[in-house]
């Protein structure tokens, strides 16, 4: 029997901001807590852009100055293992999203000064961590307990991307030991704190169908350890469409088959 402090109990049982309504074209009513969602795809299919889109929806409030934004007013922990996170890009996305809500320019200009400070106040709800090895990632995830205990507004954890250290581990002889521990740690974090997990996984390995059957070509290559693939409840596969700039998103477990394009103001679903 493990003991816990009063603060831990509150953090665990207290209600964290709900994610209902986040990206209905992908999650329907909304992503479920205690669940791991994986975004899988090749280079340049918009996985990271999709995460940025989620971040902006999470950290924006529902209403600002009588404007209905439809955000979630939640805190996000973002772990960047790819060293690609751009805060300026996120700030720009937030600004464009807000601009799009105004009906006319005069209305917008009167709010311009407020907007800057408003965006800054939203960015406070983001916690950014960078990890440079799988060991570093493992220990960082374990230490997340403290952050999750002290902040009951954190509803979402994101990792971009989980496959960054795959070859490094494979070749340094660590193989799957760290990845197994990382999976177990994530699992217990989700269960204990009732948060949602979004991770991206890059298609860095060619997928081969083992049975040699060419008709049932697999959409994805499950090259990570078994524990990881069992841990992922819903996998969204991003497939670039050759003839257009759109990307198709398929999730078999959720019955999702939609397409989106990346425009100036972020992700647009069809």
């Amino acid at each position: 029997m493990t003991s816990e402090t009063g603060a831990q109990l509150l953090a665990r049982l207290g209600s964290r901001p709900s994610m209902n309504g986040l990206e209905p074209s992908l999650f329907g009513a909304g992503p479920e807590t205690k669940t791991a969602y994986e975004l899988y795809g090749e280079e340049g299919t918009g996985k990271s852009e999709m995460l940025m889109n989620f971040v902006s929806s999470c950290i924006l409030p529902d209403v600002w100055n009588d404007l209905k934004i439809g955000g979630h007013n939640a805190c996000v922990v973002f772990i960047d293992t790819d060293y690609k996170f751009s805060i300026l890009h996120l700030a720009l996305l937030l600004e464009k999203r807000l601009r799009g809500l105004f009906k006319d320019d005069s209305e917008m200009n009167s709010c311009m000064e407020d907007m800057e400070s408003f965006i800054k106040s939203c960015l406070k709800r983001l916690q950014l961590l960078r990890c440079n090895s799988s060991s570093n990632l493992l220990i960082t995830l374990i230490s997340l307990e403290n952050i999750l205990n002290s902040n009951s507004d954190i509803s979402v954890l994101m990792i971009d991307s989980i496959s960054s250290f795959y070859w490094l581990d494979k070749c340094s002889g660590v193989d799957n030991t760290n990845m197994n521990s990382i999976t177990a740690t994530l699992n217990s974090l989700l269960d204990t704190y009732h948060i949602v997990l979004f991770v991206t996984r890059a298609a860095i390995v060619k997928h081969k169908s083992k049975d040699g059957d060419r008709h049932t070509e697999a959409l994805t290559a499950d090259y990570m350890c078994h524990a990881w693939h069992n841990f992922i409840k819903h996998q969204y596969v991003f497939i670039p469409l050759a003839d257009s700039r759109e990307v198709k998103v398929v999730c078999q477990t959720q019955n999702v088959n939609t397409r989106f394009s990346v425009s100036d103001s972020g992700i647009k679903f069809k």
């Binding site: 960015l123 406070k124 983001l126 916690q127 961590l129 570093n136 220990i139 960082t140 230490s143 952050i147």
Partner: peptide, 20 residues
Amino acid sequence: VLAQYSSFPQCGLEVYTSAL
């Protein structure tokens, strides 16, 4: 060990102001 080997969380606002 946790303090020594884990990454330090940065607040989004700090990252933003230092990036600017």
